[in-house]
C-alpha cells in the first residue's frame, strides 16, 4: 500500500514544476498549459487527502475542478485566439499595453 504522503509529495513537485513552466515560457499557449499542470497538481493533492481522510468529498471537488478547468480552457483559448487575430502574436512580452 502506498502512503498518501507519497502522492502529496508528487503533487507538490508537479505544482512547482507548473509554476516554473509558467515563468520560464514566454508564449501564452504554453503558459496556459502550465496553469493546467498546476490545476492537476491540485487535483492530485485533493485525491490524496480524500484517501487519507477517508472522505469522498475530495473526489467530488476534483470533478468540479475538472469541469471548471474545461470551461476556463474554452474561454482562455477563445481569448488567445482573439488576441492572435488582432496582434498576430501570442508572445506575452509583446503584449504590454498596460505599461504605466
Amino acid at each position: 500500500m502506498i502512503p498518501p504522503a507519497a502522492f502529496f509529495i508528487l503533487a507538490a513537485v508537479l505544482f512547482v514544476l507548473g509554476v516554473l513552466a509558467f515563468f520560464v515560457k514566454k508564449d501564452l499557449l504554453t503558459q496556459f498549459m502550465a496553469v493546467e499542470v498546476m490545476l492537476n497538481a491540485g487535483n492530485l493533492a485533493f485525491l490524496a487527502l480524500a484517501k487519507s481522510l477517508g472522505k469522498a468529498e475530495g473526489q467530488v471537488i476534483v470533478l468540479f475542478v475538472i469541469t471548471v478547468a474545461a470551461a476556463e480552457a474554452v474561454i482562455g483559448l477563445a481569448i488567445i485566439v482573439l488576441i492572435f487575430r488582432q496582434r498576430k502574436t501570442v508572445q506575452t512580452d509583446e503584449l504590454k499595453d498596460l505599461k504605466g
Binding site: M1, P3, P4, A5, F8, I9, A12, F15, V16, A45, A48, L49, A50, K51, S52, L53, G54, K55, A56, E57, G58, Q59
Partner: peptide, 20 residues
C-alpha cells in the same frame, strides 16, 4: 507545500481504506 502537507493529516499515515 511539503511543510503544509506535514501539518495536514498526511503526517499520520493512512486512515484506512478510502470510504468514497
Amino acid at each position: 507545500l511539503l511543510l503544509a502537507g506535514r501539518k495536514l493529516v498526511l503526517g499520520s499515515p493512512g486512515a484506512g481504506p478510502a470510504a468514497g
